[in-house]
């Protein structure tokens, strides 16, 4: 039967997107996940594979600013979108205020969850610049950390929010 599809007869799909602001054009197998595309094809290893079933948040990336589990997102779904990985936050040589706050509060221990935590926090603060601790806990509840006990991560996100508000208000 005739069908409508972006897929070619050889099972591939072309994708045009930006990754951390840089245009990317690629031809990939339809079943390629966003995590495999970014880690294996583009060589950006900041997003981690952990649970692989979108429970833990270690593979979090932003699609047009919105957090997704890249382990369970088909890469071609990013067509025409802006993909942000942790590498994009310090692309200009200095840490993002959220990354700096994680360093300053000691919110990083083994670091495996950190890239996902920072990107999820980035989306939270874009949506709600002054979240309460409860707001942070609710929003971040899908990002698991087995080292820190979360307290300092919440501190870091509050501190980053304060610094970003001060900067916005002072400019």
């Amino acid at each position: 039967m005739t069908t409508t599809t972006r897929m070619t007869e050889t099972g591939t799909i072309t994708i045009d997107a930006t990754v951390n602001g840089r245009p990317v054009h690629a031809t990939i197998a339809a079943q390629t996940t966003l995590l495999d595309f970014v880690r294996e094809e583009l060589g950006l290893r900041g997003a981690k594979r952990s649970c692989d079933v979108q429970v833990c948040g270690a593979c979090t990336m932003l699609l047009d600013g919105t957090p997704v589990s890249s382990c369970c997102t088909l890469a071609w779904e990013a067509q025409g979108k802006a993909i942000t990985t942790i590498e994009g936050l310090s692309a200009h040589g200095s840490l993002d205020p959220i990354q700096q706050a994680f360093v300053d509060t000691g919110a990083v221990q083994c670091g495996f969850c950190t890239s996902g935590m920072v990107l999820t926090a980035k989306s939270l603060l874009a949506d709600n610049p002054s979240p309460s601790r409860d707001d942070i806990t609710a929003y971040m509840s899908g990002n698991l950390c087995r080292c820190t006990g979360y307290w300092r991560i919440i501190d870091a996100i509050q501190l980053a929010g304060e610094r970003m508000r001060d900067k916005d208000g002072g400019s």
Partner: peptide
């Protein structure tokens, strides 16, 4: 890893 599949993208309920 996901195995290969054929993707279809219908544009109407009838087609789907």
């Amino acid at each position: 890893m996901l195995s290969a599949f054929t993707l279809h993208q219908p544009v109407s309920v009838t087609e789907a």
